[in-house]
Write a protein that binds this DNA or RNA. Structure first.
Lengths: 184, 184
DNA sequence: CTCATGTGAGACATTGATGTCTCAATTCAA
DNA sequence: TTGAATTGAGACATCAATGTCTCACATGAG
């Protein structure tokens, strides 16, 4: 059987999203290959994680492309972005915590490119008057990742329904908790 | 030198909040004791983490007490809660991810007691008409933790100023991103 | 002071995961 | 078909962290 790199990475991403401490054995088994083969193609856990990081970046890039952040209102674009992120939410959550553990090493620049695009969306919304201007795009990006991770987590635990994913995040992030009382 | 259990735990919490993968040696050194002594009082990393979990619970309980969730408007109470959480934000973030890694084991019931109190705050706000009712308290709690973790993280990285902590979280969570346009 | 107790330092064993190797079996291309 | 390349399986080594000792030393209560 020919080695399917992409398939292996996706299986690894899937498993690690559910069990971040999975061993190489478990990952290999989940991908349907032997540990030897896994190690031949990804020399060590670090290499595997880095390959997964690239996969995650590619996927998130596709998500951002698919959301067409420049089209329509910034609000609509954000909703599209969140909706498109649903399939990769757990994986993103995994990569986020993994990146935090890397401590010293600087962040892969690929993430920064994506962040710039998302930041541009927030800026666009602020300049068009849709979004408030007293929350910095830097914070909004991190908050978005945080909410995506939190939503992925609650869904994984069965605390909330998967179909509510987008509404949960955008409902809170866009509208906020306070009720909009129509001025009398 | 007499063994100061609380001091050791606080040092461990402080270190692990910054470096989640710190070893027992590093933790002992950070606490100013030997690894032998550390192991005498906390037999293994698991025991230490569990003790830290209890410390975190105690601290969060104090935070909740201090915030007087039943006083005044729910909005004000939430702001007080977030403000009071600032000193323990990084530690909470650490414990959150740690809990996620525990996989199988059920959550310590102490957290549930705290969550019930916070959920009650959200419910109170919803019943009083301050908060929207289409976001479940379960989600709001997780979202709050997620935002606290995200804020702690950005501050730790120097991306945002510590003094903005409360405003960042409450600004987004209460008001939302969309500008409140006064009806013309 | 004296002794019991707890501590620090370090040596050593253990453990779990990972890295490395070999070899038979399989696959694929020529 | 043949042969080169790759895989699976497992044995074995390595490594980092942890667990477990011992013992000299310090501390504090009596």
């Amino acid at each position: 059987m020919a080695f399917d790199r992409d398939h292996v990475l996706r299986c690894a991403a899937d498993l690690l999203s559910r069990k971040a401490t999975a061993t190489q054995d478990e990952i290999a088994k989940a991908a349907g290959i032997s540990r030897a083969t896994l190690h031949r193609h990804f020399a060590g856990r670090d290499a595997l994680i880095r390959a997964l990081e690239e996969l995650g970046m590619r996927q998130l890039q596709e998500v951002v492309d698919q959301a067409r952040l420049d089209d329509g209102s910034a609000t609509e674009a954000l909703v599209r972005l969140v909706e498109a992120s649903r399939p990769v939410a757990s994986f993103l959550a995994f990569l986020s915590t993994e990146n935090q553990l890397f401590e010293g090493e600087e962040l892969n620049e690929g993430w920064q490119l994506i962040d710039v695009r998302i930041a541009a969306l927030f800026k666009r919304g602020q300049e068009s008057g849709e979004f408030r201007i007293d929350l910095s795009p830097v914070w909004l990006i991190e908050a978005l990742y945080g909410l995506i991770s939190a939503a992925a987590w609650t869904i994984q635990l069965g605390k909330t329904a998967p179909r509510d994913y987008t509404a949960m995040i955008t409902g809170l992030m866009l509208g906020g908790l306070e009720r909009r009382t129509p001025q009398p």
